Simulated scan of single mutants.
Amino acid sequence: MSITITRLGHQGDGIAEGPVFVPRALPGEIVDGTIQGDTLVKPKIVTPSEHRVKAPCPVYNTCGGCSVQHASDSFVAEWKTGIVRAALEARGLDAPIRTLHTSPTRSRRRAKFSGKRTKTGAIVGFHGRGATQIADADRCLVVTPSMAALVDPLRELTVRLGSRKAEVGFQVTELENGFDLAIDGAKTPTPQETMDLMIWARDNRVIRLSVNGELIGQEAVPTLGPLLPPPGAFLQATAHGEAALMACVSETLGNAKTVVDLFAGCGTFSLPAARKADVHVVEGDRDLTAAAETAWRQGQGLHHMTFETRDLFRRPLIADELNRFDAAIIDPPRAGAEAQTAEILISTLPKIAAVSCNPVTFARDAEALIHAGYRLNWVDVVDQFRWSHHVEIAASFSRD
């Protein structure tokens, strides 16, 4: 049967009346196929959208990593901006969106690959859409060229450490001086295999290697700008996206002399902020807090910083603690910062630089702040995960 796509969902699927979900379809398109449940399977585009383009990636049809590569850049930009606008408007809030920052192709410096042995060797890449098969990533247009070149050596590791029944996971981060590689789901290496792994790591610019949560070896201190991230640490996906977020945070902080960084990670925003202000770092993961402190002690030209490991979901900073600061940086995980926001509402904190990876929880927390007297001055949308449905937000709040 034929159906007409009326809109694009938050996961990148086309949606027709019903609703019926159609993978890789665009609004306005007429699509043929068979409906199974709420999904049109094996869709055939009868009338294509003017925004449809030929996907540039050679494995797009089998890889599940990109959901909207078949749409023009201008369409994707408007769609991602619209996701943020819709989340705010659903809460009755104006959406003062200034701009969209889109990271270029081949710029992702952090990725999780899957590896599986085959009869003739191994395959390493990303899972296909809703499938167990893996699409090779050596020609990926999202990750950096250096990371794409690492895929072939990772196939060698998959043969060494993987089994025919299970997959091996490779968390790869490209740093300034090499790769940080954390492997999971692998066979425990023998002492001889460990020595061989270190030779492999040296040959492939892997400066830190962990297997199943255990550090196997480290050739050098991994660095990324002022950061000294621990193994597997969360980092912004692209240098471009990180720079856009940092510029937004800096703009909001202005001339603040004392800053608190909530959900600080290993110091992505707090270390740059310390160039102009005293900063108190609060993070729930002890290893990340320690990494931020070490980076500060080894850094130059930074103001005074203090560090606190604290679960902000269970024990947020209370209003009296927040009142000591001129501004706050807040970058919570996808669940948002509901408990911490409740304390901010009753504080005298004048400025908030907010970063979020979830428009829905951002809008929820923004609504609470605005009802408490804060102004949402502006919102920037940051697209680090090109061609995916993911979107990030940087925003500025203030009150007199």
Rank of each mutant, 00 (worst) to 15 (best):
M147P: 03
I344N: 02
E167A: 12
L227S: 01
D136E: 13
V382M: 03
E17S: 14
V172R: 08
G265C: 08
A131N: 12
M305G: 11
V31F: 05
S396K: 05
L224S: 08
V381H: 00
R106P: 00
C63S: 04
E219V: 10
H101R: 06
G82C: 00
V382W: 04
I370E: 09
A372H: 09
P332Y: 02
N255H: 09
P189Q: 08
R275T: 06
L302A: 06
D311N: 14
A135I: 02
I35P: 04
V159F: 07
F397L: 04
V124D: 09
P58C: 11
D32Y: 05
A335V: 12
A233Y: 06
K44S: 12
V360L: 04
R52C: 09
S347N: 03
A182S: 14
D136H: 10
D311R: 14
L175S: 06
H10Y: 04
H70M: 13
A135S: 15
V355P: 00
R310P: 06
I318G: 08
K112I: 13
H240E: 11
A264I: 01
L150I: 04
P229A: 07
G284C: 12
L262Q: 03
S74V: 12
I330G: 05
R324A: 13
V221F: 01
T6M: 13
L302G: 06
T47P: 02
E167H: 14
E176K: 04
W200R: 15
F325A: 06
A394K: 01
I216F: 07
H240M: 09
V22I: 13
I207W: 00
Y374I: 12
T144S: 10
T81K: 15
L224E: 10
V260C: 00
K42M: 11
T289C: 15
R108G: 00
R202G: 09
K116M: 15
P96M: 10
F179Q: 06
G82Q: 05
H240K: 14
V172Y: 06
H127W: 08
N204F: 00
Q171E: 12
R24D: 05
S2K: 13
P222A: 05
T194K: 15
H280C: 08
